[in-house]
Design a protein around this nucleic acid. Structure first.
Lengths: 148, 148
DNA sequence: ATATAAATGCAACAATATTTCATTTAGAAT
DNA sequence: ATTCTAAATGAAATATTGTTGCATTTATAT
């Protein structure tokens, strides 16, 4: 589980990556760290009406470049962003974990605690990273389903 | 490896799914079966200038619904389509295989021959399907790289 | 040969991604 | 504290992509 962070820690994170500590960036960080699912740009737009769409777009881009967040696609192909492990560097992500796409609520969960089993590819392929996508029912939607 | 098919076999495929045997559909099928990498809509548009972009869009959609092709996203998030194994049914795909995204040529390879190692998810998650994405250098790009 | 449902092409529209530029602001230098 | 400057923001404009509606064409069943 990702440890909860306070505002000072978010400021430190921006500092570390030579990014100015601006209100929009701090709000985006705090929102992303408060959830255990990935966040899409529309998600952010729905909550932060006062921040320009283009600003959010650019914040997501720099955060990804700097290795603060990483991109995953949901079942519809929309980009979702989730906070990275501590060991991600700028432009070099190490997200060897499992992503779970819920077919009902469409949320994307990063199951960081699961490590991937190793796998051998056909001759010639030189893999640099792996991600396993599982899709199905997340705990919440499974519960709702069985109650009915 | 996917066996090469001829035009009669493509017609049979369309027949089997109650789709009319039209020229655009046959051309799309033949193109997708001639490659060992997934095909994006832009790929099709670049080759088939005379077919309307909406037609291609709709062909890809029905083919996916019918279980003839399945969708994978490349590293940029663009949808790519690849022909399915024989055991895919309409609206119920069984594509439990490995996808390889080349970071250089951006091609997506379906490594159908590889089966996925089983994995246990945290309590509560009810998975229905799995896909493993590997990214790195494909054989072609790796060769080009080492020659220099 | 004809009828009809399906498929296509075109135009229009919607949503999203991206660029440009003027204005504002964080943080460094004084 | 004040000023300066590069970086970040917001607003408008443009580009690209996804989607729908409808008139016309075409495959195929009769």
């Amino acid at each position: 589980m990702i440890p909860v962070k306070n505002n000072y820690q978010f400021e430190d994170m921006l500092d570390k990556h030579q990014l100015k500590k601006t209100a929009p960036r701090l709000r985006v960080l705090s929102m992303m760290y408060s959830k255990n699912t990935a966040t899409s740009q529309p998600d952010l737009e729905n909550v932060m009406h006062d921040i320009d769409r283009v600003t959010l777009y650019r914040i997501l881009n720099v955060f990804e470049e700097k290795g603060i967040i990483h991109k995953v696609f949901d079942l519809d192909g929309t980009a979702n962003y989730a906070v990275c492990h501590s060991d991600c560097e700028a432009n070099h992500h190490h997200d060897e974990h499992v992503h779970f796409n819920c077919t009902v609520c469409k949320n994307v969960y990063c199951l960081n605690e699961l490590s991937l089993p190793s796998i051998t590819l056909p001759a010639g392929f030189k893999p640099e990273s792996f991600t396993l996508y599982a899709s199905g029912l997340c705990p919440k939607c499974d519960k709702k389903n069985s109650v009915k």
